[in-house]
Simulated assay, not measured.
Amino acid sequence: MAEGEWGEVTFKKRPMRAAEAKSQKALNQAQRKGQGIETSKKFTAATNKQHSAAKDTAKLDRETEQLRHDTVTLSLSRALQQARVAKTWSQKDLATRINEKPQVVNEYESGKAIPNQQIIVKLERALGVKLRGKDIGMPLGPKKK
C-alpha cells in the first residue's frame, strides 16, 4: 500500500453475554431483525417451596384409601387440653414453653394436627403428663437414670 491509500478495515463484533441477551434492548433488536425469540416461565422459580400439593396427593393416594392424613386422637387432644388448663396456661404460654407456634398447640387440641412424635414429646415434658400409650393423661414417672 502506498502512502495516502486507504486499505480495507474489518471490525468484528463480540458475541452477546448472557445478561445482555436477556435485556429489553436485545429483545427489541432481535424482533427488528426477524429472529426468533424463545421465552419460558419457570414454575415456582425464586420461591422457597420444597413440597407441592400434587406430590402430597400422590403420597396420600399410595398410602390410604380415603385421601386423608391421620390426625391426633381425641383422647390425646382432650388430655392435652386438660393438662394445660390444670396448669392455668394459655395455648400461647404452652407454645412458648415448647418453642412452637400457638397454632400448633391449637391444632393438637382441636384434633386437626398430623401427629409428630417430637412435638408430642415436648408437650409431655412441658405438661408432665403422658400423651402416648395406654395410660394417656397420667402423670409422667420419675426420670430414669
Rank of each mutant, 00 (worst) to 15 (best):
R97F: 11
W6D: 07
L140W: 02
G133I: 04
L60S: 07
K33C: 03
I114P: 01
A30F: 06
K25D: 08
L127H: 02
P139A: 06
N116K: 12
G36L: 09
P15R: 09
D70Q: 14
G36P: 06
A83Q: 01
K55F: 05
K13H: 08
R125V: 05
K144L: 00
N99H: 15
V72C: 02
E3L: 02
R97M: 13
R125L: 07
L76T: 00
G36M: 08
K144F: 07
V9E: 14
Q31D: 05
E124Y: 05
V105F: 02
E65V: 11
G7P: 01
L76E: 01
A83Y: 00
K92R: 11
R132I: 11
G36S: 06
I120V: 08
A21Q: 13
R132M: 07
E65K: 07
T57S: 13
D93I: 07
K87A: 13
T47Q: 14
K49R: 10
A113L: 08
D61Y: 06
A58Q: 07
G4V: 01
K134W: 06
E38S: 12
K25Y: 06
I120N: 00
V72H: 00
E65H: 10
R78H: 14
Q50T: 05
I98P: 01
Q117I: 04
A45P: 03
T96S: 09
S90D: 14
G111S: 10
S90C: 07
I98C: 05
G133Q: 04
K144R: 06
L123V: 03
N28D: 12
S75Q: 14
L74E: 13
G141Q: 12
K22V: 03
K122D: 08
E38F: 08
A21Y: 08
V72K: 00
K13L: 12
Q118A: 04
V85C: 04
E20R: 02
K22P: 03
S40Q: 12
D70T: 14
K87I: 05
G34W: 06
K22Q: 11
R84E: 02
G4I: 01
R62H: 07
T73M: 10
L74F: 06
W6L: 14
I120D: 02
V72D: 01
K13Q: 05
E100G: 03
K134C: 03
G133C: 10
M16V: 07
D56M: 15
A95V: 03
G34R: 07
G4T: 02
V85W: 11
D93N: 04
R32D: 13
K92A: 14
Q103I: 10
K42E: 15
K55R: 15
T44A: 12
E100T: 14
K122N: 08
I37K: 08
Q81I: 03
W89L: 04
K59N: 12
E20P: 01
E20F: 03
Q66H: 07
Q35T: 12
A79F: 05
